[in-house]
């Protein structure tokens, strides 16, 4: 079954019809989606600027990461869940859309970078600043922020492509 026929089948399911026909569901789910990306962006901003060395430099970076990484994971969970509802409601808008798949690829890259460059810091001693990290940490921190910005752009552009 191709992704196109899957999308067409999904569109005809009763659950998809219910989501589409209940006026408040899509705006509400989209608003929760935006609120979650805001939580993620706020956490990513503070964490990555700390790793880049330009924010809260007087606080140890593992302590900063320890505070915000769980928020990023919770936000990701809600984003995937609300995103799924939006896909089920309007599969044609997303599954056949190159911008949507670009967004998914960028989200995957951003979270792999978070896993590789932030999660190991949780294991470092509470007082330490994990100074033995690779020279890639700073550029990756800036790259991550750029990726989240592009993800938001892609998200908005799904509606126009």
């Amino acid at each position: 079954m191709s992704i196109q026929t899957f999308g067409q089948w999904l569109y005809t399911t009763p659950v998809a019809a219910t989501i589409r026909e209940t006026v408040w569901i899509i705006p509400t789910v989209q608003a929760v989606h935006i609120l979650s990306i805001a939580v993620l962006v706020g956490s990513a901003l503070v964490s990555n600027l700390r790793l880049a060395g330009v924010f809260a430099a007087d606080e140890a970076s593992p302590a900063v990461i320890r505070r915000y990484l769980p928020r990023m994971w919770s936000a990701l969970g809600i984003l995937l869940l609300t995103g799924l509802v939006l896909i089920v409601a309007e599969p044609g808008r997303t599954l056949n859309n190159a911008v949507f798949w670009t967004k998914m690829a960028l989200v995957l890259i951003a979270f792999v970078l978070t896993l590789v460059f932030q999660k190991p810091l949780l294991q470092s001693p509470p007082g330490g600043n994990g100074s033995d990290r690779s020279a890639m940490t700073k550029p990756v921190a800036w790259l991550s922020l750029a990726l989240w910005t592009v993800v938001i752009f892609c998200g908005r552009f799904i509606a126009y492509t």
Binding site: L35, I37, A38, V39, L40, V41, G42, S43, I152, G155
Partner: peptide
């Protein structure tokens, strides 16, 4: 939207 996520994301902290 980018601006809104930054407003809400930072003010929420």
């Amino acid at each position: 939207v980018v601006a809104i996520t930054l407003v809400f994301g930072t003010i929420m902290i």
